[in-house]
């Protein structure tokens, strides 16, 4: 009886998971399939999921509308470089906030978290002036450097590192290890899950970032992929076919990054979420 109940529960459990997966996957699948439809098929009623006439025309035309190879390279450079810097800063700051005791530590942590409350739109003009004064305007480094220290990344790292036993660090100190040796040889290898989590988040933020590059970049050649995608939406017309085609291409890197780091991802997230 108990075995039967367990079996039924398992079947229901999997059925629910399959339904939820299909529910979340459907919009992505629809985007991908629609990118292979001619524009005239997009608005057909009744709606058909599969293209009646498969075409690569949308991809070819979209690629000819701009230097998409360059936009992808720009986005890739920005996302990878910014992620490396963000991970380094987050891990170091998280370690400092969780394992070092100094006056005003918690206050500083709260101040840092409070910066999450300021929307970018509010500080757009001062940021523009700052970037202009510092010579970062219209450079890819202007997109990378200023938002590198993310409060969310530091928060996640701090929460995770608080779970690492202090006794381990103290033992290393007694054994004569220096602070940098402790950080690089003990803390860093133990922080793989949170590094993977911040890597996924940071890559996704930077890859999908639109507003910051919009302020910083003044030259078409330095555009990121998100800026180029937005250009398909005009005042009076939207080129849905080409937008869908390039969106399909643009989501690939994020999926790849997630697949590479996913085995650490859940551990990192859950550790950061419940311990503190």
């Amino acid at each position: 009886m108990i075995m039967n109940n367990r079996k039924t529960f398992k079947i229901l459990h999997y059925a629910l998971l399959v339904i939820l997966t299909a529910f979340f996957l459907f919009p992505v699948l629809w985007v991908v399939l629609s990118s292979f439809k001619p524009q005239s098929e997009l608005f057909q009623i009744p709606i058909k999921i599969l293209p009646q006439q498969w075409t690569f025309e949308n991809y070819i035309e979209a690629m000819s509308r701009g230097d998409f190879v360059r936009y992808f390279s720009n986005s890739l450079f920005v996302a990878v470089t910014a992620t490396i810097i963000t991970v380094l800063i987050s891990i170091m700051a998280g370690y400092g906030f969780s394992k070092y005791f100094f006056i005003g530590r918690d206050f500083l942590f709260m101040v840092m978290l409070a910066t999450l409350m300021i929307p970018l739109q509010v500080i757009m003009v001062p940021i523009f002036l700052q970037l202009k004064a510092s010579g970062l305007l219209n450079t890819l480094w202007g997109i990378i450097i200023p938002p590198s220290a993310t409060p969310t990344g530091i928060f996640l790292a701090r929460q995770y590192m608080a779970t690492l036993p202090n006794s381990m660090i103290e033992a290393a100190r007694i054994d004569g290890a220096g602070e940098s040796r402790i950080f690089f040889h003990i803390i860093l290898p133990l922080s793989k899950p949170i590094i993977a989590t911040i890597t996924i988040f940071s890559f996704m933020w930077r890859w999908n970032d639109y507003l910051w590059p919009l302020i910083v970049i003044l030259d078409d050649k330095k555009q990121t992929i998100q800026q180029a995608l937005a250009n398909f939406v005009g005042q009076l017309q939207i080129n849905w076919s080409q937008l869908l085609a390039m969106t399909t291409v643009a989501i690939l890197p994020v999926i790849i990054i997630f697949l590479v780091f996913q085995k650490y991802f859940m551990t990192g997230i859950s550790s950061g979420a419940v311990k503190g």
């Binding site: 757009m124 003009v125 523009f128 002036l129 202009k132 305007l137 507003l211 919009l214 302020i215 970049i217 003044l218 030259d219 078409d220 555009q223 800026q227 937005a230 250009n231 939406v233 005009g234 005042q235």
Partner: peptide
């Protein structure tokens, strides 16, 4: 030297550029 900006953010961008003396 042309920059193409999405229409939805065009006004915002132009305002920021004018404020920043650019």
């Amino acid at each position: 030297d042309m920059q193409v900006v999405a229409f939805s953010d065009y006004e915002q961008k132009l305002k920021v550029m004018l404020t920043g003396d650019m």
